[in-house]
Design a protein around this nucleic acid. Structure first.
Length: 428
RNA sequence: GGAGGGGUGCUGGAGUGGUCGAACAGGCCGGUCUUGAAAACCGGAGUCCCUCACGGGACCGUGGGUUCAAAUCCCACCCCCUCCGCCA
């Protein structure tokens, strides 16, 4: 939400609907600014009108060879006045925009109440958690003994929270991304894109990463680019500042990109393995729809993401995030949680959100129905899936007592027919 | 990185200080004509903001500046094209 115009219209209802989510929004200050803006704008425009007429008058006098010095002097004074008013107006708008960009999206009616993840609601489960006749190893142990993951050397060349896949491990990541892209493009109607992984500030503002979450992003020292934390950023921004004819909707894109996150504030958590890294590969789904189709599309997009887990025969569940766990830009989110044997828990592997018009307003992405007026469309996004976490699930789910790991059937064609990963000698 | 050219509406393309929100052409929408279509002819179409309304304001890559008045003049930046260098 929340250009100045929509703030004027729905300031009060917005405050009420956000409730605890809007706790740190300075509502009263915004209200004062809105009122100032209203009066200041009306006044400034009246003065501008007077200037237009006055300037025409000067032109008329000069054309008729009449003296215009007095009129010009008046106009000069008027111009100074207008300048002062415009400056005040700009100042008000700057402040309003700064506030508006930090107001989160309003949750959909079907989002359950609750302060944190403990109140998320399970929607459905697919598959059964396997029972092992032995104690299942965590993926990092499997990966290192198989010689397909090398955390030590990744730490040397980059630092903590970086990983490196080797041999069949690297091949596995590539195979998974290819499988996901193929399923989404061939059976779910998504069009593949390969976007830039560095974007400008406008793109980050459009999807909601800026200004509020700047500390989560990697910056470049000498250039005004930022590393994308998800392909949602470049792909959603594809149509920024455009008005799309409604017959092109829905637009569905899928992209496989690296994602970069500083993970500031998560020190000490999940420091081992592939669970939480500064860089990871993710296949992302992004959709653009008309407002009345977006919730059907959210179901469709979520099912597309689920189809990957089903193809890989990995047990998972779907949960609806409660209000307190909902992201800044989302109106409703389903998380897909895959079963992780070493933790005996379901862990997030995909997050599918309908942002409604929140991002569209920030990025000015509109559509036009027929020959009518432009309106903001709705944007959705979801992981389909996070590749690194899929590797975790496969290693752990398909492990055997001897430390070998079977390759799921659908993946074997992408792995040059390899059916099983076994430890093989390698330098170090 | 160096040299030059350019950024105007859906598109092409005029426009070097006032009557320009913008000629002209194409495309698009509606109408006339036609059995139907094409052609021809007539008409209509930008985006955004303020206002109950009447009406008013803003927008010619972006941001500043000059001026009574800027698409038009000045400055900075961004983007695109051509040539050279470099590189995958």
């Amino acid at each position: 939400m929340y250009d100045i115009r929509s703030l004027k219209i729905q300031w009060a209802s917005l405050r009420e609907q956000l409730g605890a989510r809007g706790a740190d929004v300075p509502w009263d200050e915004i209200d004062t600014l809105l009122q100032d803006h209203r009066t200041q704008l009306a006044h400034t425009e009246t003065l501008r009108h007077r200037r237009k007429q006055g300037s025409d008058n000067v032109a008329r006098l000069q054309r008729a060879s009449q003296p215009a010095d007095a009129a010009i002097a008046d106009m000069r004074a008027l111009g100074d006045t207008i300048g002062r008013h415009e400056e005040q107006l700009r100042e008000i708008e700057t402040q309003l925009e700064a506030h508006a960009l930090r107001i989160p999206n309003v949750p959909h009616d079907t989002v359950p109440p609750g302060p944190d993840a403990s109140r998320n609601e399970e929607v459905r489960r697919w598959g059964d958690p396997p029972s092992f006749a032995f104690t299942p190893q965590p993926h990092w142990a499997l990966g290192e003994s198989l010689g397909i993951l090398d955390f030590k050397r990744a730490g040397k060349i980059a630092g903590a929270r970086f990983a490196m896949a080797v041999g069949a491990g690297a091949q596995l990541e590539r195979a998974l991304a290819s499988l996901m892209l193929d399923i989404h493009t061939r059976t779910h109607g998504y069009t593949e894109v390969l976007p830039p992984c560095l974007v400008n500030q406008d793109a980050m503002t459009g999807t909601g990463q800026l200004p509020k979450f700047e500390r989560d992003l990697f910056h470049l020292r000498d250039d005004p680019y930022l590393l994308i934390p998800t392909a949602e950023v470049p792909v959603t921004n594809l149509y920024r500042d455009e008005i799309l004819p409604d017959h092109v909707l829905p637009i569905r894109h899928v992209a496989s990109t690296p994602c970069f996150r500083r993970e500031a504030g998560s020190y000490g958590q999940e420091t081992r393995g592939l669970m939480r890294l500064h860089q990871f590969q993710k296949v992302e789904l992004v959709a653009f729809t008309t407002p009345d189709e977006s919730y059907a599309e959210l179901e469709r997009l979520t099912r597309a993401a689920e189809s990957i887990l089903q193809a890989l025969e990995l047990p998972y569940r779907v949960v609806t995030l409660c209000r307190g766990d909902l992201g800044f830009a989302a109106a409703k989110t389903y998380d897909l949680e895959v079963w992780i044997p070493s933790q005996s828990a379901y862990r997030e592997i995909s997050s599918c959100s309908n942002c409604e018009s929140f991002q569209a307003r920030r990025a000015r992405i509109r559509f036009r129905a027929g020959s009518g007026k432009p309106d903001y469309l709705h944007t959705l996004n979801g992981s389909g899936l996070a590749v690194g976490r899929t590797v975790i699930a496969i290693l752990e789910h398909y492990q055997h007592e001897d430390g070998s790991v079977a390759i799921p059937k659908v993946l074997q064609p992408y792995m040059n027919g390899i059916e099983r990963l076994t430890a093989s000698p390698r330098h170090g």
